[in-house]
């Protein structure tokens, strides 16, 4: 007797426009590419918070401080949810953190740079979270269901981050001349980084292309970059901010924005761990990880004690009634 095989391959499911779930048999390629992007987005959330933490003590008002703490709480929460997702796919959290600290897995280019001024914090939240949001929003349609579900909450919370950033931008854009100058100087610094944030063009990135084919990444790097311009160019103009790229314009014939090709050499140098702040931030995280190792060890020991005592009190295990 032949029982019909009920299991579809990933390709079959994708062809049926089905969502992939945890119990499905995943190919190594799918799992590796998926875990790769999850680790990248998780690392970016985590290191983004590292960039902003320096300003938590110094946030210039009561309201700003509360918003900044809340924002960073969200970012750590996003990192937690995404690392946990990779754990459910068989990765080990401690190994993922170790690999981040060793520079073996990357994170967003923006978080390798210093945030020396308060306006940098506004711009990170408005322009860079805004860039990340293009990717996160598209990931709500990723082929991997559990990742898509997390992205729905992530996007809801990122919307608040962008509003918080824009509130700071508006304060500067409508403030004193000194503030307006600081704002423009800030955009001059962060604009090229935002353009690069989306990564290499599709024709240059084999991996990105494959992720699009497998539905892991619903939109390509270039699509996301163009979408970002669509959203942010009007916003920048609204605040009288100049786009610091003399070759930037909308090409009616090609129906897309044209811009100066980013300095990919700088990009590669930065994201491979040689940014001005990369090592300092990773060192801080390493120290924190080591200094709190005893806490995690105590948690484990407590759990073992508790399990041991549960087994001696027979009958009290896992009962609901």
């Amino acid at each position: 007797m032949h029982i019909e095989e009920n299991t579809l391959s990933i390709e079959d499911r994708l062809a049926n426009e089905e969502i992939i779930e945890l119990g499905d048999p995943l190919t190594d390629e799918y799992r590796d590419l998926l875990c790769g992007i999850i680790q990248f987005t998780a690392n970016s959330e985590f290191m983004g918070a590292f960039t902003e933490r320096e300003w938590i003590p110094r946030a210039p008002s009561y309201q700003r401080k509360l918003a900044l703490i809340a924002k960073n709480q969200d970012e750590i929460g996003h990192a937690q949810m995404q690392y946990q997702l990779a754990e459910n796919l068989g990765r080990d959290r401690e190994e993922m953190l170790t690999s981040l600290l060793a520079g073996n897995t990357g994170f967003g280019n923006a978080f390798h740079y210093p945030a020396d001024e308060w306006i940098d914090i506004g711009l990170l939240a408005w322009m860079l979270d805004g860039a990340a949001m293009q990717l996160q929003h598209s990931l709500m349609d990723t082929s991997y269901g559990p990742y898509a579900r997390i992205m729905r909450r992530v996007c809801r919370e990122e919307e608040f981050h962008i509003r918080h950033g824009e509130h700071i931008i508006r304060e500067y854009a409508t403030g004193s001349r000194a503030k307006r100058e600081r704002l423009q100087a800030g955009v001059d610094r962060w604009w090229p980084r935002a353009v690069m944030f989306f990564g290499l063009s599709d024709d240059q990135s084999e991996k990105s292309k494959r992720m699009v084919e497998l539905g892991i990444k619903p939109k390509s790097n270039d699509e996301l970059r163009q979408q970002y311009f669509d959203t942010y160019v009007p916003k920048l103009r609204k605040y009288d901010i100049e786009i610091p790229d003399e070759n930037f314009y909308y090409d009616d014939a090609a129906e897309k924005w044209q811009y100066t090709a980013p300095d990919w050499e700088e990009f590669n140098t930065i994201v491979s761990g040689n940014g001005p702040k990369t090592q300092q931030r990773l060192d801080r995280r390493r120290t924190a990880f080591e200094d709190t190792a005893w806490v995690r060890e105590a948690m484990v020991a407590y759990n073992e004690d508790e399990k041991a005592s549960r087994f001696t009190n027979s009958g009290s295990i896992n009962t609901i009634n």
């Binding site: 590292f50 703490i69 750590i76 690392y83 995280r285 709190t292």
Partner: peptide, 10 residues
């Protein structure tokens, strides 16, 4: 607030 990002677990 000084613990943000450096806590024992996320």
């Amino acid at each position: 607030a000084e613990w943000v990002t450096v806590g024992p677990t996320m």
